[in-house]
Amino acid sequence: MDAFIAQVLSGLVTGGIYASVALALVMIYQATHLVNFAQGELAMFCTYLAWTMLDAGFPYWAAFAATIALAFVCGVVIERVVIRPIGESSVLAVVVVFIGLLVIFNSLAGWIFTYTVKPFPSPFPAEPLFGNHYVSSHGIGAIGVTLVVLALLYAFFRFTSLGLAMRAAAQNPVSARLVGIRVGWTRALGWGLAAAVGSIAGMMVAPTVYLDPNMMAGILLYAFAAALVGGIDNPWGAVAGGFLVGVLENLLGAYVIGTELKLTVALVLIVGVLVIRPSGLFGRVTVKRV
């Protein structure tokens, strides 16, 4: 039983990471109805930026804040320079551009920072909190950070006029433009926010998996699974899906199939959800007009 609780809790910790990347995916999906394949690599690259600042002697939280700001700018610039001109020409063109971005960020990170694995510090104390022997304090901290981010995003979308404008632009761009919302900029803002959320996820995951250019591939896959399980248009669903997928992954890994097939679990989850219930557990069913 003890081992079981430990597995569930460590599943929640990894689930928190999946949840934050899934949250970033949902942000972009809500703003543009696109699934960003480069999200993971963007987060990885931002984590390298954080590492550079820490290496130069910045205090942790200063580097943390600066990285989030840089990631935000990065996201806005990418949207303005690459995504906006391609517009809604065709799904294939958009996917190709995303894959191009993925490859560019991956190779840039390898080029600038080399492919050697680097340790990344955790802002949380090394000894477990409250004397528990299940979860490290970094794990608890990471979950806490995910929940804080979720709460902030919720508050932003629910209580600010900018958040309202963004929701309006995502739901009905034409009418939103008619009432004076600058739809193009709300999309760029969505990208910036997604990049910022992604960079937080990157900094939270790096202490456990170590920093290297390929660290996000598996995580991105699980984040896709999480976003789809929860419903890709629903931030709460994405976070719930993240925790669910994290726990499921850990329990299956510990008791059923072993750790070697973890990515296959994600594959089965993704295909399964898409085939059986494309809207996910909490998503809205959309009907397409012919």
Partner: peptide, 13 residues
């Protein structure tokens, strides 16, 4: 070592 992929990415876009 990373250049081929950077070039791939640039060519894709």
């Amino acid at each position: 070592k990373a250049a081929p992929w950077a070039i791939y990415g640039v060519f894709l876009i």
